[in-house]
Write a protein that binds this DNA or RNA. Structure first.
Length: 461
RNA sequence: UCCCCUGUAGCUCAGCUGGUAGAGCGGGUGGCUGUUAACCACCAAGUCGUUGGUUCGAGUCCAACCGGGGGAGCCA
């Protein structure tokens, strides 16, 4: 038994081969039947030919339709026609599972992504979703390799968290209390002391705070796990459940953090271009023309690095009429990010040193007292793909920032201990895995780059 | 959550200022000895998202609801 990917690299010397998989398309004439077999090992199908089939084989071939699963044996031969170098001249065929064409939802034609989303259990059988699965796999592997080569430790931060104020968005509650009649306190609010954890608990929105703990002991760590946001957001770049990569590095400032983020993205894209070339060529041709050229430029050139203040200047001096007014102190809107990445710099841009008021409490306060050492990596089409910062390492400054942000110091006692004992400058960032996949493939909707998307009012499959 | 667009055959869509539905693909049958978006011929297939309203008459106009898509905000 050989996988199609290997089969296609063999030289055709009439050797006997067996393959199995799912039939993508069949074409036949009176004495000649062609079908193409795909087993997910690569984008390409292998063409199978039956010439003058025996009556038994003909009966089986009649049951072969798009979507059927088959095992086929034959000899690998040079193909006389264009379209493929080699093909299997079939001698034996087993139809493992039929796919009746009048009810099988996938036809041998192009389907819209909207339709395929409704049949997410079958969409990995299409070219696009097979390619996405392989790209996700390649990127995941490369992410681990990148960090492992640099002596980062993979740490497993918790999925369930009790800190409800990480400030990264609405959270999903985790509870074993009965939803119809939860216990109430004397004031009428829900009493969580009897809940599973004895306190309110949620699904994590970030592993960062926990990662900092390990970075401040083991020097350099990363997490790669699922993350949950209960935001009621309905866009092409948000999910309620997504995968995030969060490196955290001790003795590292904002500049070292930017270097890491940039090396990381370029490493991943370079690896993908090299090791998923067939799939990437497909995305270039069918999904986003020009994609490969764009990615090659990103791999080969340094990212632009500007401060928030410089970004504001670039926007105000552009003469462009934006829907949202540009002023120092206001957050950058989508249209501003798009303008910077797509028109001013035509590539990834790292923006640093944002006003303290629009960023999280844990970001290191700059000497000017007005800005923090935040960094966002913005890319064309998507906007923010990475958000990170140098963390505030000074105890009293951090305590002041927590209070400024209206948070309760006591909730962060363990986080503050990191500054109380052996504090070090450290920095890190979060990369949204699905956004990376979107960027790398040119896919428009984030729901099409994750196998089973979870979004508002959407959790089937 | 807000704004805009959209819902007609299995899929993708057309259907003008209201007169009870059409194309391509897909499917079925037949033909074809090298196809590869196969080709040729024929055939079948629709409670026009749901409910209500206007009208002699609604796929078409109006309202509400439901589903889908895009944009914004929030962010990764």
């Amino acid at each position: 038994m050989r996988r199609v990917r290997d089969l296609l690299t063999l030289s055709a010397e009439s050797q006997t081969v067996t393959a199995r998989g799912w039939v993508r398309t069949k074409r036949d004439s009176k004495h000649l039947v062609f079908f193409e077999l795909n087993d997910g090992s690569c984008l390409s199908n292998v063409q199978v030919v039956f010439e003058n089939p025996t009556p038994e084989a003909a009966a089986d071939l009649a049951r072969v339709q798009t979507g059927a699963s088959v095992v086929v044996s034959g000899t690998l031969e040079p193909s006389p026609a264009r379209g493929q170098k080699t093909e299997i001249h079939g001698t034996a065929l087993t139809v493992v599972g039929e796919a009746p064409a009048d009810v099988y939802p996938l036809q041998k034609k192009r389907h819209s992504f909207e339709y395929l989303r409704e049949i997410a259990h079958l969409r990995p059988r299409t070219n696009t979703f097979g390619a996405i699965a392989r790209v996700r796999n390649q990127l995941s592997f490369a992410i681990h390799r990148f960090f492992q080569e640099r002596n980062f430790l993979y740490v497993h931060t918790p999925i369930i968290t009790a800190s409800d104020a990480e400030g990264a968005g609405e959270m999903f509650r985790v509870t074993t209390l009965p939803p119809d009649a939860p216990p109430k306190s004397e004031f009428g609010d829900v009493d969580f002391s009897g809940d599973f954890f004895g306190r309110p608990a949620y699904l994590t929105v970030s592993g960062q705070l926990n990662a900092e703990i390990y970075a401040c002991a083991l020097d350099r760590v990363y997490t790669f796990g699922p993350t949950f946001r209960a935001e009621n957001s309905n866009t092409t770049r948000h999910l309620a459940e997504f995968w995030m990569i969060e490196p955290e590095v001790a003795f590292c400032d904002i500049h070292c953090n930017m270097d890491l983020a940039e090396d990381f993205l370029r490493y991943l894209l370079s690896d993908l271009l090299q090791n998923c070339s067939e799939d990437m060529e497909f995305f270039n041709q069918r999904i986003q023309p020009g994609l490969l050229d764009t990615l090659r430029v990103v791999v080969d050139s340094a990212f632009h690095r500007i401060s928030y203040t410089q970004a504001i200047e670039a926007l105000t001096s552009s003469g462009r009429d934006f829907e949202f007014p540009v002023s120092w102190g206001a957050d950058l809107q989508s249209e501003h990010e798009k303008f910077l990445t797509e028109e001013v710099y035509r590539g990834p841009v790292i923006v640093t040193d944002y006003p303290r008021e629009i960023k999280a409490f844990y970001m290191k306060l700059n000497d000017d007292g007005r800005t923090v050492r935040a960094m966002d990596v913005l890319v064309p089409r998507l906007g923010e793909i990475i958000g990170g910062s140098e963390r505030e390492a000074d105890l009293s400054t951090l305590e002041r920032r927590i209070e400024e942000c209206g948070l309760n110091r006591d909730d962060y006692w363990w986080y503050l201990d990191l500054r109380r004992f052996g504090s070090v400058p450290h920095a890190g960032f979060g990369l949204g895995f699905e956004r990376l996949v979107q960027y790398a493939t040119g896919m428009q909707n984030i729901r099409d780059v994750i196998p089973f998307p979870r979004a508002v009012r959407s959790a089937e499959f």
